[in-house]
């Protein structure tokens, strides 16, 4: 097991290097290179531009530029924002807790409903509920997140006025209750996409377990249905589900772009969108690298967790 983890970790290193190289190339591929934004201001003379280029180290060979950049990156220095005149790291970290709150709430909603729907559908296979769930999950998969968010906003916030339209709610004003009220709509929108997929997943892995011999044995022994489920089926069905969640968590941070934009949630997703509109490329690059690393780590953890939970996997 230890060797397996070590190998996985080692395997992630070239990936991380690749991520830095691609990000670096991306910055340099921008029309005219990273300083073009300055040049495009149109009001800078050559002297000033040269000074900026020198300051950014652009007069050095590309390899040295890259090495410098990676060195800074390793120390957590993502550069300074063109727009906000302060370190990108601070800008991102400031938004991180808000996004984690949203993602956490979204996950709770998604996991809860996926389990309920998936389990009920599996227990009552081919029943009315089963068909209904599978039909609804089709809708869930077909619904663009942004439009679903828009509809919820128009219905619950604008038409009915039950919930706030946007923002996070100031803790001074309404405290925790107000925060939760603000959280409901965006978290639901963020979670609903996964419910469709995950509940189907839970259903099929439940069915798989139910069909297995030991379940029949258990049932034959006269154990009551519910205890059979909770003791045997559920546990065995949940193992793969956990890893699916692990793989999907980073996608939540990505999905946050759309959700946070619609609901003006002050997290990293909206930061991405705002930076995009302000063409604040250092922040965009920071977020891109951040999410790439998150995805790599998420996959790694899912991998290891799966291996750990499922003894059938051989660590070869």
């Amino acid at each position: 097991m230890g060797r397996f983890i070590a190998r996985r970790l080692l395997g992630a290193i070239p990936l991380l290097v690749g991520i830095t190289i691609i990000s670096f190339m991306f910055m340099h591929l921008m029309p005219g290179g990273p300083d073009s934004l300055y040049a495009r201001s149109g009001r800078m003379n050559q002297e000033q531009l040269d000074a900026i280029r020198q300051n950014m180290g652009l007069d050095q060979p590309v390899v040295i530029q890259y090495a410098r950049w990676v060195g800074n990156l390793a120390r957590g220095d993502l550069g300074n924002s063109y727009v906000q005149f302060r370190p990108v790291r601070d800008i991102i970290l400031e938004r991180l807790p808000n996004t984690m709150l949203l993602v956490g709430a979204g996950l709770i909603i998604a996991v809860t409903f996926s389990l309920i729907f998936g389990i009920v559908a599996a227990i009552y296979q081919y029943s009315f509920f089963d068909h209904l769930f599978s039909f609804v999950s089709f809708f869930g998969m077909a619904m663009p997140v942004f439009w679903f968010g828009l509809m919820l906003q128009l219905l619950f916030a604008v038409q009915l006025g039950w919930l706030p339209t946007s923002g996070m709610g100031s803790m001074d004003d309404g405290g925790i209750i107000e925060r939760i009220r603000h959280l409901i709509l965006p978290a639901s929108v963020l979670g609903v996409g996964s419910i469709a997929f995950w509940s189907r997943y839970v259903r099929s892995s439940m069915l798989e377990v139910i069909r297995q011999d030991y379940m029949r044995t258990a049932r034959a022994k006269g154990l009551r249905e519910w205890s059979v489920f909770s003791r045997h089926a559920l546990k065995n069905a949940l193992i793969p589900f956990v890893t699916v969640i692990g793989i999907d968590i980073p996608l939540y941070f990505v999905g946050a772009v759309v959700t946070e934009t619609i609901f003006s949630w002050p997290g990293m997703g909206r930061l991405f969108y705002d930076s995009l509109n302000a063409r604040d490329y250092p922040v965009l690059m920071g977020l891109l690298i951040f999410s790439a690393v998150l995805i790599v780590i998420g996959n790694l953890i899912a991998d290891i967790a799966y291996a750990y939970l499922d003894p059938r996997i051989k660590y070869s």
Binding site: V254, V258, L276, L288
Partner: peptide, 15 residues
């Protein structure tokens, strides 16, 4: 492919 998948498509497209 792992590398490409590490970059969220929507981010890359938007940028």
């Amino acid at each position: 492919i792992d590398l490409v998948l590490a970059f969220p498509a929507i981010f890359m497209l938007l940028i």
